[in-house]
Computed example of a mutant assay.
Amino acid sequence: MNTSTVEAARQAIGPVGAFLPVTFTEAPSVHAQRDAVERLESAGYPCTWTNEVFGKDALVQVALLLGATRRMVFGTGVANVWVREPQTLSAAAAQLAQAHPGRFVLGIGVGYPQQAEAAGRDFGRPLATMREYQRRMGEATWPPVPDADYPRIVAANGPKMLELAAETADGALPAGLPVGYTAQARQVLGPDKLLVVGLSVVVDSDPGRARETARATVAASLNSPAYAKTVTALGYSAAAVVDDRLVDAVVGHGRPDAVANLVRAHLEAGADHVIAMMPGGDFDGGVAGLEELAPTLMAVSG
């Protein structure tokens, strides 16, 4: 662990960032993505996070977006371990960090069984996979990877993966979980590691409609047995009919000030950085929603 790397990342990414909206029909063009991150940077977000779906390469995407902005930091949320060899990821991440010092955070994760299957791999034992993957990232290559500094964090939505992140990485990235998990994560990580929290958000002036949209988001997450197990262990129901208590705990929904209240709660519980994640499906609408949220969230940051 490099504490100076973590502290530099905290300063660079700030308390609140944005997740580039995800669509489930077709990937937005590079031109649309560049326009989106320029808008998010203008709105005040210091950091944008990207995912890895549709067979795209998360590192290539980040490289293109880094070149389209002047100051914005980019993080992978997350680069999937099944789609590239560890040494390849290590070299690519170091090249990005060398080209854009202080503007890149590498988030990695094992994802879901279907992602391993799509890559022709066996999901097997995710903890062992993540440990071995990180070990191999550190192996010598020829030619050697650039000597460039960047933080590496691990997607950790369960206690065992969180412990592994504390042991082997610069921090952790849990997502879609209540404030209580953030507090637990900070205890496990200690004060010197980076804690980035993904928070789904729904902006709607109609509180009832916002909650129903949020409920659908949570219901989709509960299709994952691992997620259901985690929220159950935290004292929430994982029933098919999602109760209001769980919805209100894991999705910031309603007017911007209501969303900001949940962001603030995660920061007070120990998060270094909270990622605002709009519902998937509407890229342009999601970017517009993040722009609408920006003034209120930047006030939380201040």
Rank of each mutant, 00 (worst) to 15 (best):
A269F: 03
Q87F: 05
A148W: 01
M1C: 14
P86M: 01
V202D: 08
P28L: 08
G75E: 03
P21S: 09
S221K: 15
V6P: 05
Q187R: 11
D272E: 08
A172C: 03
Q187I: 03
G14D: 07
V259T: 09
A68I: 03
Q61H: 04
T50Y: 06
T88V: 14
V105Y: 08
D149A: 15
M161Q: 10
L64C: 10
G176K: 03
G77F: 05
S301N: 12
A288W: 04
V202T: 05
R131G: 11
R264C: 10
Y45E: 12
A128P: 01
D192I: 01
L199V: 11
P21W: 07
P46Q: 13
D147V: 04
T76N: 01
L106C: 00
T5I: 11
F54P: 06
L173C: 03
P207I: 05
H273P: 06
L20Q: 01
R245D: 12
T50I: 13
P113W: 06
P256Q: 04
Q115G: 03
E132S: 11
G289V: 06
R10F: 00
A258T: 10
T23C: 07
M137H: 05
R103H: 04
A169F: 02
F19L: 11
A172V: 07
N223T: 15
P86Q: 14
E139R: 15
K56W: 08
N261P: 15
V105P: 06
A165E: 11
A18F: 02
E292F: 00
R131N: 13
G124A: 14
T5S: 13
Y133H: 07
A249C: 03
V201N: 09
Q184C: 02
P146M: 05
P46F: 13
M137R: 10
S4P: 04
V202G: 06
A79D: 02
K56G: 10
Q98Y: 01
P126Q: 12
V83I: 11
T232D: 14
P225M: 13
G235Y: 10
